[in-house]
Every structure is written in C-alpha cells, then in structure tokens.
Design a protein around this nucleic acid. Structure first.
Lengths: 341, 341
DNA sequence: CGCTAGCACTCCGATAGCACGACTGCCAGA
DNA sequence: TCTGGCAGTCGTGCTATCGGAGTGCTAGCG
C-alpha cells in the first residue's frame, strides 16, 4: 500500500465519511460545500481524486458521477485514518448497565449483545455461543426413558449443560444406568475427552457404547454439535439502500442461512477486532457488505465470536468501538461464569 | 359467503391455480388457452369474472389487466375448491425416510422438519419447540459454581432438560446444595408446578428461594422462558416476485424477527391445519403472505407449532398436505420420545 | 511548479410522446 | 342465455429530448 500525501489522506477520509453518511457518490463540489475549511478549489480536489482513483482507492460508477470508495479505500480508511475509536464513557455506561440488569445466563447475554449491537449500529448482529476448547466433565447422568433408550445429561466444568437421548443396543434397567453413571462420574470427574478416551480400553462393551456417546457429545465436531448462530437486526440492514435490489438482499440472507458460512468467516485471534470489507475477495455473497467482529471468551478455554454485518458503507469507528466493548463484556461474562474461583 | 354457481367455482379455481403458477394476472383469453376443455367463449368467462369481481373474489390491478384472486378468493379456494390434499405415498415415504435417519433428538427433528418444508414448498419454514403443558419434575440437580452461585439442572418427565444459573442470597457450601437437591428430588418427583407450589409453606427461607427459581423455570411464562422459533428458507421466499420491492421483503423479515409475533399467530387446535391468508386483516405485516401451519405434539402434554410462510400465491394443496404430514410425524416423535411407556 | 478558473464533454435520470398489445365492457343478434 | 365483435382503456417498451451534475483538460496566474 503506497504512501499517500497528507492532502490525499484528508480527501480520501472526507470522501469516505461523506459517502458513508449519504450513500451518494461525492463530487468535488459537494465535498467543498460540506467542508468549507478546505483551502483549495474544486479543481484541485478533482485532480487529487483522479490520483486516488488511479491508485485504486476510489471509483466512479460512471463518467459524470461523483467518487465513491473502493474496498481498498475503505481498508485504508479503517487502518490508517480512523482516529479514536473508543466509545464515550456515557455510551459504555449505557451498555454496561443493560448487561448488569440481565439474568446471569449465557443465552440472555447473547440475546442482549445482539440487541445492543443492532440498536447502536443499525446492522445485523451475529453471535455464536462460546464453545469450550477442551471441555472437562463435571457430572454425568443417565436416565432411563424406555427399555432401549436413555437420556444422557452432561454438565461440564464451568456450567455448560448438554443432553442427548441415546438408543441402546440392548435393553437396560434403570438401576444399571444409574449405577453406571455414578461409577463413571467419579472416574471421569474433571477429565477432558482425550483423557477419557485413554481409559476406554478398561471398559466392557456396554460401557464403551455409552462412553462413545459421551465423547461425541464432548467433541467440538461441527457435525455432532452444530453451532448455533444467533442473529438479530436483519431487517435493519435490509433497509439500507444497497439492498434495494432484491438480488443483493437475497445473497445476504442466503449467506446467513448457510450454517457453515459464518463459522468460516468468524475466525480471529481474541482481543482484536477484525474487519472484513466487501467479502475481501473470498466471500462472493458479501461483496456489498462489511463484517466487523471479534472473538470473545478466554483463549484455550471457551471462545465465541460476535460481530456486526452491514453494508460496506458502515460507520466503522462506532462499529469497531462497540464490537470491542461488547466483546470485552462478554469475555468478562465467560471468565466470571465459566471459570469459577 | 354466498353461493357460487358451479361454473363460477370452476372459473375461480382455474384463475387461482393459474395465478399461483404464473404470478401474472390472468385474462379471459389466457384462461381459455390453458384450458381448452372449457366449452364456453372468452366473453362468457369475462362475464363470470366480472360477477366474481363484484362478489369480491377477484380483482383487477388496472382496467386492461387480467384478474387475480383477492384474499377472499383464496380463502374460498382453500376451503371449498381444494380437492384431495393427501400427499402421495411416494412423497410420504421420502419424508418419513429422512426422519428415520435422524438422531433421536428434538433439535435434530426440528431442523429436519424445517428443511423438509422449505425444500418441498419453497417457502420459509417456521417451527417452535414443543412446550410442555404441565411439566412434571424428574430430576433436580444443584451444582455449586461459586460461593454465591449455583447451577440448577432440571430434567422433566419425558426428557426435556433445562438449566439456569442462580445467584444465591447467601454463601452456600457445595455439600449443602447437593443435600438440598437430593432431599427435594425425592419430595418433588413426578410433581408439576402447582403441586410443588402447594408444598412451599413447609420450607425454610433458603429452600424457598431455590424452589422459586425452580418454579420460574417450570412455568411456561414467556418472559422467563422465551420460546425459540426456528426458521429456515427465508431466502427462498424472498426470491418470489412479490418480494421484489424491498419494502415488502422488509415487512416480512421484521415480522419474523419479532419474537412475540409468531407465538400470537401460531395458535390452533391440534390435528387441523390452519391457513392464514394475507394476514387475515389482523397482521398488517403479512398482507402479502399466507401462513399454513399446524400444532403438533400431544394435547395437554407438550405441543409446538410448525408451518410454512409464503406469498399468498402459495401452492395450498401441497402446503396443507405437507404441513399436515410433517406435523403428524412430529407428533409421533413427541409421543414416542416424551411419553415413555 | 503547483494551483485555479473556465469550458467542453459525458452521462444519467426524468419526462414526454407514440405505437403496440392485452384485456375489459358492452351490445346486438342467435 | 350465450356469443361474436368492436370500441375503449391502460400498461409496457421504445425513442427522443433536456437539464443537471460532475469530470478532464488546458491555459494562465502566483
């Protein structure tokens, strides 16, 4: 990314901001009218704009239209021109306050996080539940439901609860199931899947059958335990002018409905906010969108992702600030709730 | 609803069918071309169409356009003109087969039901989890997580599992919690919320605190336990021509995002398939849509709803047949899984 | 050498006019 | 009671036109 003169940076920044605000291509004259403090003429701006276009930061929808940023232009803007992106103390307070009022429950917090992002950014909020990295067993229950059927309830260290109903290969008495659960409960307490797998040779065939189910439940295998992506605010995004044409809107909705899609996209180191602009070449469906997201949770323990999806013409500063703050809050939640002292 | 002559019924039926197939207003000549067996002239058809319009079953978008059905026309069609709406044996088999391959789990079945509806009807599928009418307790666990925090895991008769983390009013030892859970476990086994509430006077303050949480978890109160509505196939619907204009699409998406909205709509006696056409006057947002849905489950025990949302121009016969069949399958699932012998 | 003023040029979008085709409504006659 | 035919209505697609917004270029100024 070659260096831009200071004046080019200013102009690029102004074009991006104005375009974000108005959704209209901005011309040299319009730019001047909105920023009277620019001490140059419109002709100069035209020259600089042409230069920025040659460098790939701006485009033209057609000859006699104003300029609008390219994805590269947005990227430069986000990485180099974005100043202070901390939320104000007042905004932080409002958000924090809402979280403190909610019940101590992950699903509540997720719903709330989505609502906060949606409301403050007018975009679609996405959030995945935190997934445990190496879940360790806390308690295993087996309850008989029918002769060859049982319900397995597993509580993990940290308070995650999963359950699954099993079909058994042979009829089994309720007592036997309880007995088995109690036995394994002590033996497996605090172990992760690998440790349990190492013990598997000690078991009878029947025990092994049960333990296989347990292991499948504990694996973070996407097939066995599909990850729910909670989303909210889709209708907000669809109101943006770029989704007037139904084909654009459709691409977005389809993308969101593909369950695998977002888990592919939402991968980031924890603590940083990632920005994917216009699908960044890799995701055709997102060509009109940007995604601002962050991983939250405690690395190596339990992590999830949350973010906001909007048109490329998105208020990046606010988005980055808000996503970061909400992710921090959610991380606190995870470490508070899951890592009990 | 006044009586129509047999010829008027035929014509209304043909208009509805043709309009559903083509999404174009159908004129008298077009109707004849598609149904050469009609032994009348186009002029006669025009007369009958005019009569049907006077009676409110058809409209005109403008003077020189063909006719299209009104909501009243659709309703007449659905209630009086729809013949055999059983699925063919082959279709039933295909669907049943898919269900038998799935794991024995409600969430899996819901996902599958949604997928089946979406694929066979090209509409958005909606489905709520079965909610127990009077849940009876099977097992209660209390696990200590922090000094003043505990995790409550409740298994209901039938194998539903819910959990919630609690904040306690005073520090409590893990042992005490386990002890309490065990004690209540026996006392509450197989009781419903009312029966438990009747016993509440026997308890110490601390026990009462816990039991309050238990009761809130057992109540089907919408605030305490918001009902998830799973949906799929939204993008299919948005491809229909009536959602070209983004405002229509938006109304639909907003409606789906309002959590309370669908629980209001989806209320029906079990066993029958309900059809809501064009929002039926009550739901503004659905004015371009129809909703074909049914309640499933076992009345008085656990029930949910499932259905399909599409444009009013929807293939009602297929929709009603498919929704009914899938609802039946889901009911079997509920009685099989929840009411263990 | 950089900046500016001015001008020619391009292109979009809105508007109007026109011909075409689809359909209705109606009337007279079988 | 039905039908054939005809006049009338209205949307659609095509074309032409016009104004406006904005660019690119060039000559001239500091």
């Amino acid at each position: 990314m070659s260096e831009l003169s200071s004046r080019q940076q200013t102009i690029l920044g102004l074009v991006v901001k104005l375009y974000i605000a108005t959704a209209q291509p901005v011309g040299s004259r319009t730019l001047l009218e909105n920023h009277l403090d620019l001490q140059v003429s419109s002709a100069t701006i035209r020259n600089e704009m042409a230069a920025l276009e040659d460098l790939g930061y701006l485009t033209h929808p057609h000859t006699s239209a104003g300029r609008m940023p390219t994805d590269k232009g947005y990227r430069y803007f986000v990485e180099r021109l974005l100043g202070d992106i901390e939320l104000s103390a007042a905004e932080r307070n409002t958000i924090r306050h809402q979280f403190h009022q909610a019940r101590l429950e992950m699903s509540q917090w997720m719903r709330l996080a989505a609502a906060v992002l949606t409301r403050s950014l007018r975009g679609a909020a996405l959030i995945t539940a935190p997934r445990m990295d190496k879940p360790r067993l806390r308690q295993l229950s087996l309850l008989s439901t029918q002769a060859q059927r049982a319900l397995m309830v597993v509580v993990f260290q940290g308070g995650n609860v999963l359950n699954r109903s099993l079909t058994l290969s042979e009829p089994t008495s309720p007592e036997l199931l309880i007995q088995l659960a109690n036995k394994r409960n002590f033996a497996f307490e605090n172990l992760d899947a690998d440790a349990i797998r190492r013990k598997i040779s000690d078991f009878t065939d029947f025990e092994r059958e049960i333990v296989q189910h347990l292991l499948s439940l504990m694996s973070s295998d996407a097939d066995a335990n599909p990850q729910q992506i909670f989303h909210d605010g889709l209708s907000e995004v669809l109101q943006e002018p770029e989704f007037e044409r139904s084909s654009e809107a459709n691409a977005l909705v389809s993308a969101l409905e593909q369950p695998s899609f977002l888990t592919d996209v939402l991968d980031a180191p924890i603590g940083t906010v990632q920005v994917v602009i216009g699908g960044e070449g890799r995701w055709q469906e997102l060509s009109a969108c940007s995604l601002v997201f962050a991983k939250y949770g405690v690395e190596g323990f339990a992590t999830g992702a949350l973010g906001v999806l909007g048109p490329t013409r998105m208020p990046y500063a606010r988005a980055i600030g808000t996503v970061r703050y909400v992710a921090d809050l959610m991380s606190d939640m995870v470490s508070d709730l899951y890592i009990h002292e």
